[in-house]
Design a protein around this nucleic acid. Structure first.
Lengths: 344, 344
DNA sequence: TTTAGCACTCGCTTTTATCGAGTGCTAACA
DNA sequence: TGTTAGCACTCGATAAAAGCGAGTGCTAAA
């Protein structure tokens, strides 16, 4: 069956209307609201075809039609056009993100908040995955009698604090010496590049403090290890409750349960390797609970090879054009925003 | 009207039953379930008195009785007895909190999570308020061409990262020199003790870098400033949806909205100056949205004078004995748990 | 003072009735 | 051959009516 121009127009009308109203659309509504110049009877015939093609669904016999996942898929793949953010919007974004800038740990949290404010959906943002991130600076700082603090600055501007417990803590001077040696040997490396040779060299130099050194190295590797224990920030969770599709508390609760688990969020976001914005509609998501939701995600890149993920969760009925546009704009601009904020 | 022993027993029965079932209790239920040795008719008479005293309420004419805020208040003030945590429970707590210990920033988050797991309510935990906290160590670390990272370790084991933008960044050696001077003059001080004299001394020593120094001092003061911008961690938000009283999404949404605002949470927790566990029942809370909720809060203390707050939010129908016992146990033990974890 | 008995209340659930948006089909029309 | 007006039909949603039953308050007897 041919998907002619008229069918496409009708499908678009149904999707756009449903995104707005969350109500099934009838043929008469389309005829009246969208001036296609054809009668409701003709539209009925076309709708019947669209349903046969699996693009729309009739929730029950005496109701209008609703887009199916497949319908959204077609729409997303071939019909919708994202738009560029205007300079004003980018500036607004910058302001939102910059809001608390001198607390570096808030950066991603603010980004998540900005997205949920802009889209009215729930957003998920991961820290940059540190696997390929380079070590920029390591500093050991005394904490108390039995532990020291390792501060690790990466070239993607993230800061990691890691407490290391030791039997006995070296003197401050010794810690400084350590720090310098570590920087000398490790700065510019990603965690993948810390090999036996380097470790041996370091061990040679600090033989008497071998125990300390290996604890520190372990901490470094731990802090920089890949995707599994990266921080995940969410924002706008409350927006989920505003969606008519979660009007019954049971469903909402199930989703909330899932979204409070760091691992589930990480899994949802992970796996996407392309650089473009990816859209997963309803059942296309791995997670059963997400079958009424869509996820729009993208990879953002900061300086160097470091990158993280941003995702936006809404109902399948979400405003794909708006959200995809915003997300595209964010991943395009985030690096320069962060750069401008932190300098360098 | 006298509140004799029998009335109290009946009130207790009503409260305990209602905490469990969330259903209004009738006289017959009490007669059957709680062997008070009197008939339902007698209980009815007593209940009528209790209602007149404002301790219980009849939601509508043909329903059983439900405790009023005043009833809970009486219960909480004079009837209930909290219990000590068993060593096993303390140990369990320790394990929950310790779970991610070498990431210091997770400590309070883990504490919040532990509480929500133990109580099945929502928990709120603030960082220690830094006002009276002492500076233990300051370290300046180069970040990039235009900014440096200040790491501040306090005697309550918290670590603060603060990025400082500068026109030009001093050399690493210079930063070390700075750090040492700062430590020399400021270590052991709380932010209140940084006075003009100290600043002048420092300025004298680093005249040529006056600009840098004042930026750093500003950052220190900023990081240590009082209660207003302290981190607040929450956990178990999903538990709110499990409560029958939030079965309608509108109410749940209102609460969620409020609980996503850091400031509101901070205000809720703040203001309690006593050292004991405080219980605010229903409308006793300032916030309109909380009128169906109770808040149980307490102040915890870490080493030195630093302290923070822990709160637990549940329905007015919450299990006060359990929650108050757990909270008491936590604030009693948290200092030693943290100490054991970080050493010193 | 306590309790059995009973009439009464009123929210909740179930049943029945009504409404109307939307469909599919048919037949006429361009 | 494609389009449209007309119409019977479907079925969820809403409203109205009926019945149920937990719980009460009151009375009178123990």
């Amino acid at each position: 069956m041919l998907l002619n121009d008229r069918k496409i127009k009708i499908l678009e009308a149904i999707i756009n209307d449903y995104i707005q109203t969350a109500e099934p659309i009838g043929s008469r509504t389309i005829a009246k609201k969208y001036g296609l110049g054809i009668s409701s009877a003709t539209i009925r015939n076309e709708m019947s075809d669209l349903e046969e093609l699996g693009l729309i669904i009739q929730p029950h016999a005496s109701a209008g039609r609703v887009p199916s996942d497949k319908g959204y898929r077609l729409y997303v793949d071939t019909l919708m056009r994202t738009r560029e953010l205007t300079p004003e919007e980018v500036e607004y974004l910058r302001i939102l993100i910059a809001h608390n800038m001198n607390k570096i740990d808030y950066l991603m949290q603010e980004t998540a908040k900005a997205i949920s404010i802009l889209t009215n959906y729930m957003s998920i943002v991961t820290e940059p995955y540190p696997a390929k991130t380079q070590i920029k600076h390591i500093q050991l700082i005394p904490m108390d009698d039995v532990s020291i603090l390792m501060v690790l600055v990466t070239n993607s501007k993230t800061v990691k604090n890691h407490i290391i417990r030791l039997g006995r803590v070296p003197s401050y001077e010794k810690l400084l010496e350590f720090s310098e040696a570590l920087n000398h040997y490790l700065a510019g490396d990603s965690v993948e590049n810390i090999d036996a040779e380097k470790v041996t060299k370091l061990l040679g130099r600090f033989g008497e403090y071998g125990e300390v050194l290996s604890a520190v190295l372990e901490a470094v590797i731990n802090s920089m290890r890949a995707e599994d224990n990266v921080q995940v920030y969410t924002s706008g969770v409350k927006n989920i409750l505003s969606m008519p599709e979660f009007n019954n508390v049971g469903k909402a609760k199930a989703i909330f349960q899932a979204l409070e688990e760091r691992e589930i969020l990480a899994t949802l976001l992970g796996g996407g390797v392309t650089d473009d914005v990816q859209i997963l509609i309803g059942a296309e998501n791995d997670h059963e609970l997400m079958k009424d939701c869509s996820l729009i995600k993208a990879r953002y890149k900061l300086d160097g090879d470091s990158y993280g993920h941003i995702g936006i969760i809404g109902p399948t009925r979400m405003n794909y054009v708006q959200v995809a546009s915003i997300l595209k704009g964010i991943v395009k601009n985030i690096n320069s925003i962060v750069k401008a904020l932190t300098g360098g």
